[in-house]
Design a protein around this nucleic acid. Sequence first.
DNA 1: ACAAAAATGAGTATTTTTACTTAATGCGAT
DNA 2: ATCGCATTAAGTAAAAATACTCATTTTTGT
Lengths: 215, 215
Amino acid sequence: MIKPVTRIAVVEDHSFYRNGLCMAIRRLKFTELAFEAANGLEFFEKQRANPADIALIDVMMPVMDGYETVKAAKNEFPLLKFIILTMMDEDETITKFIQAGVQGYLLKNIDNKGLETALKAVIHGRQYFSDELMPFFTRTLKQEKERPVNQVKLTRREIEILQLIFEGLSTQEIADKLFVSARTVSNHRFNLNNKTGAKNTASLISYALKNNLVR
Amino acid sequence: MIKPVTRIAVVEDHSFYRNGLCMAIRRLKFTELAFEAANGLEFFEKQRANPADIALIDVMMPVMDGYETVKAAKNEFPLLKFIILTMMDEDETITKFIQAGVQGYLLKNIDNKGLETALKAVIHGRQYFSDELMPFFTRTLKQEKERPVNQVKLTRREIEILQLIFEGLSTQEIADKLFVSARTVSNHRFNLNNKTGAKNTASLISYALKNNLVR
DNA sequence: ACAAAAATGAGTATTTTTACTTAATGCGAT
DNA sequence: ATCGCATTAAGTAAAAATACTCATTTTTGT
């Protein structure tokens, strides 16, 4: 009986890290190294010539970064599976990659054992995510839930005033700028706080930022 | 005549990167690998037992990071030379390391050739810095001059309070949360506005966002 | 251990924001 | 033409923020 061997591609720009990773893959019994690439473009060339089953891909790379690579590769190689390597710095990118349908997300400080576990999981059709990433998941999911609760509609004038508040103008300064009385602006502010549930300038601005009402 | 061989220590927490780096050093004719360590503490143990001539040290490590390690090691091993490995993210840290008297500063994306050049330079008593770091040097030096004007440094407590302001808490609420008097918080706020040039909560928050002090 | 920086807190005064209610005017849609 | 919403505006008050100065205690960095 022939033992099935999974072909792995390593896409990583740091040559020493890439070498170490390749070495580890060569040592594993159930995998073989399909090829290595220093960026997304190189990956595409080599994947066309000599396809891998799983691609280990670094997030940050020059020329063509991890996300671009995954998105493009998903089209051209629908059966290819992806394991992302990250430095943990990047925060909301996790969501992007998950939405892009990657099978794994690893921190770059994993060792041989961790890599083996992750590869086995993905080979068996499961997903694998580093434990350290859990806080990020829960944080992101919490934010998702909180959003649809409020979602009020602000008028054009209110948004205009909101923008000026964000820019640091006081009620009086806004009034002068818009040629209306300070009382008017004051009322708009009251209504803004009312609608958004904010109870002071800071929370109003936080709301505005979360909902992309100002920039 | 005996050929002199320089003993290199590799201090790096990412095991794959560490392995790749060690492999490269083993391959060089004029060096040998003294030992490898995953963090500063491990480095000290092994350096005492089996001293190296040059230490390749990662900036970001758990337990004891690059800077702490270099500072402590300078005392205990005055003849030891240091080459720092960085991801380029960290900006003003460069200054710290240079002031600490390191002999080299490399980007982690260097290859075998670059490593060889750097090691040879340091072995011959010179310093070596990746070309890509030049913009950082010039920028940093420029900022040194500009800093006293604006560009202020906020204390930990100030940033903590800034974060809570951003989250919409009032002075009193912050005081309650931090178990200090409202007067204290009020003073921190005054100092925050003072340092940042903000004249109200809104402009303070704008400043904080522009400078990534809150999220 | 020592100096420097940070954190804490009070005094005092002024300005701004927040929290409502009421209401006139204008403008667009049915 | 009129209903509804947006915009404008004023009244009244309380709460909070801002603008300093000065002093004491802790925490640091070396």
